[in-house]
Write a protein that binds this DNA or RNA. Sequence first.
DNA 1: CGATTAATTGATACTTCTCAAATCCTGTGG
DNA 2: CCACAGGATTTGAGAAGTATCAATTAATCG
Lengths: 232, 232
Amino acid sequence: MEPPVNCQLCKNHPNSVFNDLSAESLDKISKLKSCVSFKKGQTILQEGARPQGVYCIHKGKLKLFKLGTEGKEQIMRFATAGDMVGYRSILSDEPISASISALDDTYCCYIPKSSFFQVIQDNPKFSLNVLKLSCQELGEAGKMITSLAQKNVKERLAEIFLILRATFGEDEDGFVDIKLTREEIANMVGTATESAIRLISGLRAEGLIETKGRKVKIIDRVALRSEALVFE
Amino acid sequence: MEPPVNCQLCKNHPNSVFNDLSAESLDKISKLKSCVSFKKGQTILQEGARPQGVYCIHKGKLKLFKLGTEGKEQIMRFATAGDMVGYRSILSDEPISASISALDDTYCCYIPKSSFFQVIQDNPKFSLNVLKLSCQELGEAGKMITSLAQKNVKERLAEIFLILRATFGEDEDGFVDIKLTREEIANMVGTATESAIRLISGLRAEGLIETKGRKVKIIDRVALRSEALVFE
DNA sequence: CGATTAATTGATACTTCTCAAATCCTGTGG
DNA sequence: CCACAGGATTTGAGAAGTATCAATTAATCG
């Protein structure tokens, strides 16, 4: 499923940060962008690199992670169809703060830096949208910081399952529509793989979730929210 | 030390995000802004509120924190002269994600939301600066997440002292120019107050830092960086 | 269908938290 | 300026939470 040549025809368009662009600007982007595809597991960018453009995901899923002590991954967030990655580095003029790799076979549109800046300058509304996006992500990061600092591993694990469901939705069988290894789950939660496994078993035993290989189904959302100390 | 009536005369101007504004826009802001002062310890905004403008600090220090489980504070960051707070909420159109209180007697300029948006729209360069600022903060937040997830308490504590020195500088005696209670330090590091105290004693015993009441002096910066696992 | 990687479980060690008690310090009122 | 009350800091002991290492079983991919 290659992305269309023109961004106006893109099915992700309504959900993306590009949705307020004028037809004219979209045409401009369409002409300047290129398409790139990544195989499952492939690295798109390495932490510390200087990306020369932003990627807009057309199909597939990416994970963004930092390498911490002893090469352990800390997964910062995921990105899926319609999401844009790489913009933080470009706009702050800093090296990229997280590595990006593909969880699935993924197609992206690649918009070179110069075109991206041009569109920002020509479209105050788009500029404001990007600003809004980065501020929202800043809010999410803040929540993550508080969780890591104050919740225990089981609470964070429960929280992550809720976040995953909100991010990726459910498949036809009611499972959260993402496959992650236990290690990746641990790397989101910020714990050891074995600890994550034990606590997943715990949540399963309590009937809050069900698992089938690398798929997770949320059985008792209310109890899971309570376990995660989510009150909103 | 009240802020000047006109922003062009503000001593913080060169370091602030406003530094690229045209004289004309600065005049406009100067006319629309108002001055507010806060006593030490006073709360400026509460988490969940909807600020109606942004604050630019003229003098003093603020702390931004979220309340986690059982009312425990998680300090997200500090802000000092020249820094702007409240913009994240306004730009993302979300409730404010952290409470803000004054660590010192503080003077701020208050720029109403509408004026702030107007200046953003009139000044692409300023808009880009704000964008850059939020992306930089996003990078900082990412580092904090990795630290919390992967470093132990002693490593994070060492890191915090380095961050404090970089943020607040040193006074005439070489102490980091900020007074924080042990509890506040613990609330930055994400640990119990008693744990922070024990580890501070440890760093002191190892000769990496010196303390005098609520002031801290960094004695062996290199060793402290190594303790904090900071490599850059 | 192997070979390799992932998941699970157990045992143990280490880190961190909590509670309690003692001492110290700071800001305030006289 | 000094004494004092109340909060802050410090230390100890024990409990709880997590990590680590090792061994086994299960799942996945070519």
